[in-house]
């Protein structure tokens, strides 16, 4: 089944009968759609980033090429750097938390037999829910400052209510909690699949050789689940960089600009404010960061694992 890792190299899966017509009919629509719906926006945004394109300008203006002006503005723009910092902080907050929770719960899940399927099914739930709804339910309702249950419970234990949405720091924490609530499940399921791919006899063998539980875990399990963990981490990191929906619903980027992400800033300037040019330059900045980061990540993890 799909959940089990499969290894094919020895198996023959290609046709020997040539069939050039169908070969292209099957592939071309998908390639064409992706190419056009990917290439057009990518090229158009690149074009827009070098112009002064604007949706809401009043009067007759011709669109001008402005060279690197948008990027210069970007680099000197304190608001933009603030959103960049927020995005990185958010990513650094949620991804490790999800990894730790994911690993803990996946290990626990791998350790039991009865009820495993039940838990696995239940853990799938948050992934099915729209981020908008998650942010509303978990964020707006639970973190509500006056009479939300979290503050209510804190108060009943004699603590002060936490200013979840009015303090810059706590607002970020609340957003992170929402993301962790929703996406830890992804880590759990990925890591569980990885753990189930670790042959139990290897573990037993290590134990017989005198390694204790922890040593066996580090020496046997960790290296074997490493590739999947790395892939899962990369997926989560990229998604965390793109965070926007939960912020729109919970804080709108506030208080001040304390929780505004880069993507939210792009929506705010580009779509809402109509400044397509500046919005595009920010989008490109994000794209370039993601490319560099993703490339470096893949390169480094491949190399690290190759050495092991």
């Amino acid at each position: 089944m799909a959940t089990e890792p499969q290894i094919y190299p020895s198996k023959r899966f290609r046709f020997e009968i040539k069939d050039n017509l169908w070969k292209w009919i099957f592939l071309v629509p998908a390639v064409a759609i992706i190419l056009i719906l990917l290439a057009v926006p990518v090229l158009w945004t690149l074009y827009a980033a070098f112009t002064d394109l604007h949706l809401y300008r009043i009067g007759d203006f011709d669109t001008k090429f402005v060279g690197l002006a948008n990027f210069e503005k970007l680099l000197s723009n304190r608001s933009f750097w603030r959103t960049a910092r927020n995005t990185v902080v958010f990513m650094l907050g949620v991804v490790p938390a999800q990894l730790i929770i994911g690993l803990t719960v996946a290990l626990a899940l791998n350790n039991i037999t009865r009820g495993q399927k039940l838990f696995r099914t239940w853990f799938l739930m948050p992934l099915m829910v729209s981020p908008v709804v998650v942010s509303f339910i978990v964020g707006r309702m639970l973190f509500q400052e006056d009479i939300g249950p979290i503050n209510d419970i804190l108060r009943s234990f004699g603590f002060e209510g936490v200013p979840w949405l009015t303090s810059p720091t706590w607002a970020m924490v609340a957003l992170m909690a929402i993301d962790v609530w929703q996406w830890s499940s992804f880590m759990i399921l990925m890591l569980l699949a990885a753990l189930q791919g670790v042959p139990p006899d290897l573990h037993e063998a290590a134990r017989v050789d005198g390694a204790n539980q922890l040593q066996a875990f580090w020496r046997i399990t960790v290296p074997l689940i490493m590739p999947i963990t790395m892939t899962a981490l990369l997926i989560r990191i990229i998604d965390a960089f793109k965070v926007v929906e939960i912020i729109m619903v919970l804080t709108g980027g506030g208080p001040g600009q304390a929780t505004e992400s880069v993507t939210l800033a792009i929506y705010r300037t580009g779509v809402k404010g109509g400044d397509l040019a500046f919005g595009s330059s920010q989008a490109y900045f994000l794209l370039i960061v993601l490319m560099i980061f993703g490339g470096a990540y893949l390169f480094l993890t491949r190399r690290a694992m190759g050495k092991d």
Partner: peptide, 19 residues
Amino acid sequence: FMSQRMFPGALFILAFLVM
């Protein structure tokens, strides 16, 4: 195909709006 995942949604919305 998969490289599409790397592209931020923000990059698309501006172009899609105009397109």
